[in-house]
Simulated scan of single mutants.
Amino acid sequence: MGDAEAFTREFLPLYRPVPPAQPGVCRICHSGPNNADDTGGPWDTCASCKRTTKNLYGHTKHVVPISLTAKDTQLYDVVVYKRDAFGSAGRRKRSDFLTATVTHFYQRHADCLQGLAGGPFTLVTTIPSTRDERPLEAFHTMWQVVGGVDALARLHRPLLEADDKLAPVLADRWSHRDAFRIRGDGLAGARVLLVDDLFVSGAHVQSAASALIEKGAGAVVALVIARVINPESKDPYSARIWQESRDRPFSFDRCCVCAKRDDFLGRVAATTA
């Protein structure tokens, strides 16, 4: 698309920074984990990721949300309820907002994402809807969003097809090895960027990643626009993560991947000074 940085500038108050993986932040999805019974300290993964990575052929260890969100926010309304975004310049089309968001983030953090994959991506795909839509209609608006991102459009292939019979399983926040089928071949050793709009439990993302890995993908990195977090969760971390996220200004210059690297380098520099 055009100037994604200028487009997203008016919407900066809608986004919330995502914390890097660390004690008290899930290393997969960047939400708040529960405490381990034996130590009282936080698990390195949250209960949801523990559940949705079980009984699969494989799963992605790398989920990179662009922003956190909660259910009472405009970003959640735009992503979930398919409402247009409203910024300082007025109403903007939802699809344009999502495309600008992914474009601007990828412009800033392609190296971060590719570093997780072990090299440049060879394929980009999106997660289809699990509703009874056939065949191309099943690929919801994220395939159009990716098609509007110049750096990703040339690598995009509609690889995944949902098995509607397993939609209730995913809706109950359980992953399933057979929830998605792969269209075509040619995945041997592929480095795949899996793009989706919303990460709630990880059931869709991990089921899709499993299908890609089973067909030969060498690496799968999930890029999601928003990771839903529950500030009222009983675990002691989610409310803190959300409050800290609200207290810090969002910037496209920093993501949960490079933030972890920069924090580590800062600690190293402090100890060697």
Rank of each mutant, 00 (worst) to 15 (best):
L265A: 14
D150S: 14
I241T: 04
P20W: 09
C46P: 10
I127S: 01
E10I: 04
V268A: 12
V195Q: 02
D96A: 13
A270C: 06
R227L: 09
Q74S: 11
D164P: 10
A269R: 12
L212G: 01
N230S: 09
F252E: 03
L194V: 05
A151N: 01
V124L: 06
T122A: 08
R254N: 04
A222R: 02
C26E: 03
R94A: 08
P128H: 03
T45D: 07
R254L: 13
A151H: 02
Q206A: 05
D37F: 11
A259S: 14
S245Y: 05
F199N: 03
I241R: 02
R92H: 13
A117N: 02
G218E: 00
T126S: 11
K61E: 15
P168R: 08
T52K: 00
A259G: 12
G189S: 03
Q243A: 14
T69C: 14
V18K: 01
L56Q: 04
T130G: 14
S233Y: 04
G186E: 09
H204I: 00
A110G: 06
T53W: 08
R154I: 05
A153Q: 12
A70Y: 12
L187M: 05
T103E: 13
T45I: 14
R83D: 12
S95D: 15
G32E: 07
H140W: 10
A273L: 12
E133T: 13
F199S: 02
L166C: 07
M1Y: 07
F97V: 01
E133V: 14
R181Y: 00
M1D: 06
L116I: 08
R177A: 15
D247W: 05
H176M: 05
F121Y: 11
R191Q: 07
Y76D: 13
H62D: 15
L123F: 05
T272Q: 10
T130A: 12
S31M: 04
D262H: 07
L12R: 15
A188T: 10
P19K: 08
R181K: 10
R51C: 02
A117R: 01
D3A: 13
T126K: 01
L159R: 00
K61M: 08
D197H: 03
F252N: 01
A269N: 06
A110V: 07
I127Q: 01
L265F: 14
Q206P: 07
A167E: 12
G87Y: 05
E232C: 02
K82L: 11
I66D: 02
P231N: 10
R248E: 14
D262M: 11
A188E: 15
P236C: 09
D253W: 09
T272I: 15
P135R: 10
R227G: 10
T271E: 14
H30K: 14
A273E: 11
S175V: 08
V221T: 13
G147V: 05
A188Q: 14
E133G: 07
L113A: 06
Y81M: 11
C258R: 04
T8I: 12
R261M: 09
L56I: 07
D37P: 07
K215F: 00
A209N: 02
Y237V: 05
A203L: 09
F7W: 07
Q22N: 03
L56F: 12
H176W: 09
T101A: 13
E161T: 01
G90L: 04
I66E: 00
S31Y: 00
G189K: 04
F97Y: 11
P249Y: 06
A85C: 08
L14I: 08
L187G: 00
